[in-house]
């Protein structure tokens, strides 16, 4: 009864945010800020600017920055700033879909493998290892060769090849969690395995999942940008950072590197921030485990 008063304060409503986000290092918060700005510009920006990113004006190819075109114009005279903003949307949605799909599938697969154990677990582990053996980019190139160049095939292929990254981490964490006494206590209460997995084990490994999904987001962005760079991903004239780096290559030879450089810098900043945040989140979840 004495513990009543001492611990009562922990339940103040105002501490919810702190409880959920506590323990994140300052560099992690910086990464959050950078990502928030990138996402905001990419998704709100297109509604704020009135320049058509696909408006071709061959007479003003490679024009230097001006009041109307602050970042200059590309080989076809299109506004680089507008293309960077619209391209951000494409560049971010792709990896987001990849991460969402592979995280959901990987997590469910891992939780099921841990719960059922035995031969099912063995099969899942082997399949995961087999997928691991294929470089994701190679699988994506194969998929685009089979189903035609474009974002959808690349996203599906990358989603599959990213499943192991999530599934492995979730499996090992869930395995540890499953052996804890509280799981035995739930089983003896007659709680279904699916319930224990989803309502008890999953929340306890959630922080690890978020951390790894964040890391995977950075890798997926690079992979998709690389695919678009070699022309197998996003197809012209749709604006995309990876595609812009590729299209800007011609300009580099003509002393006009602006388009490639701007797009590259945005990719580096976004991926760097995602990796940094992913690392900080991993450290945080490990500190708690």
């Amino acid at each position: 009864m004495t513990a009543t008063t001492a611990t009562a304060g922990l339940n103040r409503p105002g501490t919810w945010l702190r409880r959920r986000t506590g323990g994140l290092a300052p560099s992690g918060w910086a990464a959050v800020a950078v990502l928030a700005i990138v996402v905001l510009i990419s998704f709100v920006g297109p509604y704020l600017i009135h320049t058509d990113p696909n408006a071709v004006d061959l007479s003003s190819a490679y024009y230097a920055p001006s009041a109307a075109h602050p970042f200059g114009q590309d080989a076809s005279g299109r506004d680089i700033l507008a293309r960077l903003i619209f391209g951000g949307r494409t560049a971010l949605i792709g990896p987001f879909l990849v991460v969402a799909a592979s995280t959901v599938v990987g997590t469910v697969l891992a939780l099921a493998a841990v719960w059922f154990g035995g031969w099912f677990d063995a099969v899942v582990v082997r399949v995961i290892d087999a997928i691991f053996a294929f470089p994701g980019l190679l699988l994506a190139i194969l998929a685009t060769a089979l189903f035609g160049a474009g974002l959808p095939a690349a996203i599906v292929a990358l989603s599959i090849s990213y499943i192991p990254y999530i599934a492995r981490v979730v499996r090992s964490a869930a395995l540890r969690e499953r052996s804890l006494p509280y799981v035995a206590a739930l089983r003896v209460q007659g709680v279904r395995g699916s319930m224990i997995s989803l309502r008890h084990i999953l929340p306890n490994v959630a922080s690890l999942i978020v951390a790894n999904a964040t890391l995977a987001f950075g890798f997926a962005l690079i992979d998709l940008a690389a695919l678009s760079f070699i022309g197998l991903g996003v197809q012209p004239p749709t604006a995309d950072w990876g595609a812009m780096v590729g299209q800007g290559m011609a300009g580099i030879l003509q002393q006009q590197p602006a388009e490639s450089i701007y797009a590259s810098v945005l990719i580096v900043i976004t991926v760097g921030a995602a990796n940094l945040l992913g690392d900080r989140l991993t450290e945080r979840s490990e500190a708690r485990a």
Binding site: L180, Y182, A185, L186, R199, P203
Partner: peptide, 12 residues
């Protein structure tokens, strides 16, 4: 159980 603390899910 003997040890109630380890037999309850800490996040629930």
């Amino acid at each position: 159980f003997q040890d109630p603390r380890s037999h309850t899910n800490p996040v629930r």
